[in-house]
Computed example of a mutant assay.
Amino acid sequence: MADDKRGRDKQAHDAERRQREREIAAELERGDEIEPPVEAEKLANFEGELEELTFPATGNEVVAGIGDHEIESVEGSYSIEELVPETDEETFDSPAAVRVQVQRPTVAAAMKQVVEASKTLRNADFSWTQRKAYEKTFQELKAIDADDDDEGIQAISDWIVERIRDKETLPTSRAVRREAAKFCRANGYQIRNDEWLGV
């Protein structure tokens, strides 16, 4: 491969794709963590509908194809269009990638808000690593305030969306973690310095 901009971009894209595939496999293995309230048997019908889509598929294609499908979780019922960002920039390489997205509905709904708000930014690079850091922050908030109607997740996703609108830029993952830690401490949750939110 030539050592030019196109070749380097292709290598970077391939490396990011391989990383996403590894993370999807790891997520599927960790199905028993804090939130996946969607049980595997409840996803069986959903997976049948997923097989009818052609992959890779964009968020818009997934929502257009199966957006009205309902998934039952321990916290309520969610439609796919509530969990998958409606954008052509969001691409799912396989049915497993969509399944990982919807297994944690609270986190997926928050990320949908953030991804759709980021579409308004010009020349914004919302990298895979930054997305994963945002998701991890939401997952940590879910673990901390699991009994509080996910107030922390909603507060931080709203904060991110406001920052996107007001400052016309994506906040850094460190800024998101810092804001999440402030929220937790203000609401009486202990955050240790060696934890993800302990910045």
Score class of each variant (00 low, 15 high):
Ala12Pro: 06
Ala15Trp: 06
Phe126Leu: 04
Ala25Val: 08
Ala12Gln: 14
Ala180Met: 05
Val161Gln: 05
Ile156Pro: 07
Ala124Thr: 13
Glu90Phe: 06
Lys5Trp: 03
Ala181Val: 07
Glu27Ala: 15
Lys182Glu: 06
Asp3Lys: 14
Val114Ser: 04
Asn45Leu: 11
Cys184Gly: 05
Ala180Asn: 07
Thr169Met: 13
Arg122Lys: 14
Lys5Asp: 06
Arg17Thr: 11
Arg99His: 07
Asp93Val: 05
Leu28Trp: 05
Leu53His: 06
Leu170Trp: 01
Arg122Asp: 15
Arg22Thr: 11
Ala2Gln: 15
Arg18Leu: 12
Gly65Arg: 00
Arg18Pro: 09
Arg165Asp: 15
Val63Cys: 03
Ala133Trp: 02
Ser94Pro: 11
Thr58Ala: 07
Glu16Ile: 11
Pro105Val: 04
Val176Gly: 05
Ser79Pro: 00
Glu195Gly: 00
Glu70Asn: 01
Gly65Leu: 00
Leu83Val: 03
Ala117Thr: 03
Ser127Cys: 07
Thr129Ile: 09
Glu116Ser: 06
Pro95Ile: 03
Gln130His: 12
Phe126Ile: 04
Glu33Val: 11
Glu135His: 10
Ala109Thr: 03
Leu53Lys: 02
Val114Phe: 01
Thr169Ala: 11
Gln113Asn: 10
Gln11Leu: 11
Arg104Asp: 10
Asp9Arg: 11
Gly76Gln: 06
Gly31Val: 05
Asp145Ile: 05
Phe92His: 03
Gly7Ser: 13
Glu51Val: 07
Ser79Ala: 02
Ser73Cys: 08
Glu90Ile: 01
Arg8Val: 08
Lys119Leu: 08
Ala15Ser: 15
Trp128Met: 14
Met111Val: 02
Val74Leu: 10
Asp148Glu: 09
Glu21Ile: 04
Phe46Glu: 08
Asp4His: 10
Ile71Leu: 13
Trp159Gln: 14
Glu179Arg: 15
Glu116His: 04
Lys136Gly: 12
Glu35Met: 10
Ala12Gly: 08
Gly59His: 05
Ala155Pro: 02
Gln101Lys: 14
Glu168Cys: 02
Thr120Cys: 12
Gln19Leu: 15
Ala2Cys: 14
Tyr189Gly: 01
Ala155Trp: 12
Glu51Met: 10
Val102Pro: 09
Arg192Gly: 13
Ala124Gly: 13
Arg104Ile: 04
Arg99Ala: 09
Pro36Leu: 06
Glu27Cys: 12
Val199Phe: 10
Gly198Lys: 01
Ser77Gln: 02
Val114Met: 11
Ala97Asp: 09
Val98Tyr: 02
Glu29Gln: 14
Thr58Asn: 05
Gly188Tyr: 05
Gln139Pro: 01
Lys182Met: 07
Val107Arg: 09
Ala44Ser: 10
Glu49Arg: 08
Gly188Trp: 05
Val62Gly: 00
Ala96Lys: 13
Lys132Phe: 03
Asp93Tyr: 14
Glu72Thr: 09
Val74Gln: 08
Ala186Phe: 08
Lys142Trp: 09
